[in-house]
Amino acid sequence: MKILVQETDFDPGAEIAALHAGQPRVGAVTSFVGLVRDVNEGDAINTLTLEHYPAMTEKSLRGIVDEAMGRWSLLDVTVIHRVGLLNPLDRIVFVGVASGHRGEAFAACEFIMDFLKTRAPFWKKEGTPQGDRWVEARATDDEVAERWQQSSKKDPA
């Protein structure tokens, strides 16, 4: 498991390769890369500043990955989240999951992102031509995370 919170960029190709290098049991690697867009809510976005709660961030991400590893049979997970000042086109977040088969790798990657969006202590501030503004949390993010709670209740395992 690799969990990093950093200001610097990351190389998604290198991270994907590292998830299965020398690991012949890995049959599937899924990955997600989140990026800074140049528009939000109809306004141009010049900058995106990521604030976080340093003492809690890594602990929170580790807890989310532990929960994913408890739900699915995973061989390795990498989560990298950038903080600080970013610009459109920049990468924000990487989630990579290695597993024996694709089903678990796809599901765990989506689960980790859904929980990261609703539980990990990051906050985005957008720089627009009209000034800076904090990004408001979306109710839809809570709904997609809640969906996993419901599916775990139905899961006999």
Partner: peptide, 12 residues
């Protein structure tokens, strides 16, 4: 104890 109070999170 350390208590933190913050808005709903918006990372990712």
């Amino acid at each position: 104890d350390e208590v933190a109070i913050f808005p709903p999170v918006t990372g990712g």
